[in-house]
């Protein structure tokens, strides 16, 4: 099976500060990867380079066979295949939940409105907030908003879903409802890369774990090996701090 995402020797600087160092990563279809590490290690930057919300200066990133670089025309086509869920949800406050979800299918996939709304309702059912469809983001709780954000990303029928610390901004009692949705998604066969501190979720869902520190991938291993036999000292230190 060929890789659906491939990063080769990716380097990225913010001004003089190097935030990604010699990143090499291969992701197979349906694979679930959890990226963890201390803050500032570059985890978010890494996944944001995959849908080019951040620009890498060196190296190559190939998503679903297409290379992402400054020469890429219509980066929107690639972004349509890669869904992203943000820490701050970023729902559009001036649109209802239903409109938030149907916006891209209508304007990017050029679906008729009825079809787009049916698709939206389907995904809202999947994340169990179909009864909030006509409400506005400001009227929903944090957990509901994040689930709506997941539904919005799913409406584009992406091949890959990226999660950037999806539960870090949530109150504790709402974390579970979002993680349940993500577990469901994983079981359904979605390719997922998740940046998170939720190790329980990682143990349940991830095929592979990646530990990043100071811009480098320090350790990569199958989930069981990662938690039971961490090889690097830094990994061991990190795990001891959060477990």
């Amino acid at each position: 099976m060929s890789n659906i995402i491939e990063l080769k020797n990716v380097n990225k600087w913010f001004d003089k500060f190097q935030v990604l160092k010699e990143i090499n990563l291969e992701v197979k279809p349906k694979e679930k990867i959890v990226v963890c590490g201390p803050s500032g290690s570059g985890k978010s930057t890494l996944i944001r380079c995959i849908n080019r919300l951040e620009i890498h200066q060196e190296g190559s990133i190939v998503v679903d066979g297409k290379e992402i670089s400054e020469k890429t025309k219509n980066i929107e086509n690639i972004r349509a295949e890669v869904g992203m869920v943000f820490q701050q949800f970023n729902l559009f406050p001036h649109l209802s939940i239903l409109d938030n979800c149907s916006l891209a299918p209508i304007w990017v996939k050029k679906l008729p409105k009825k079809q787009a709304e049916e698709l939206a309702m389907e995904n809202l059912k999947r994340v169990q907030i179909e009864d909030q469809a006509i409400k506005f983001p400001g009227q929903l709780s944090g957990g509901q908003q994040q689930r709506a954000a997941i539904a919005r990303a799913l409406c584009m029928e992406p091949k890959i879903m990226l999660f950037d610390e999806p539960t870090s901004a949530l109150d504790p009692e709402m974390i579970k409802e979002v993680l349940d949705v993500m577990v469901d998604l994983a079981k359904g066969g979605m390719t997922m890369i998740v940046v998170t501190h939720e190790m329980g979720f990682a143990k349940e869902v991830a095929d592979n774990m990646i530990f990043m520190d100071e811009g480098r991938i320090v350790e990569r291993a199958k989930t069981n090996d990662f938690f039971e036999n961490p090889k690097s000292e830094r990994t061991k230190l990190f795990l001891s701090q959060i477990l």
Partner: peptide, 18 residues
């Protein structure tokens, strides 16, 4: 308008004009 709004819109594939 927070940066996140533009990023979320970009992440679902909307063009700059959209």
């Amino acid at each position: 308008i927070g940066k996140g709004q533009k990023e979320a819109a970009a992440s679902i594939g909307l063009t700059k004009t959209q």
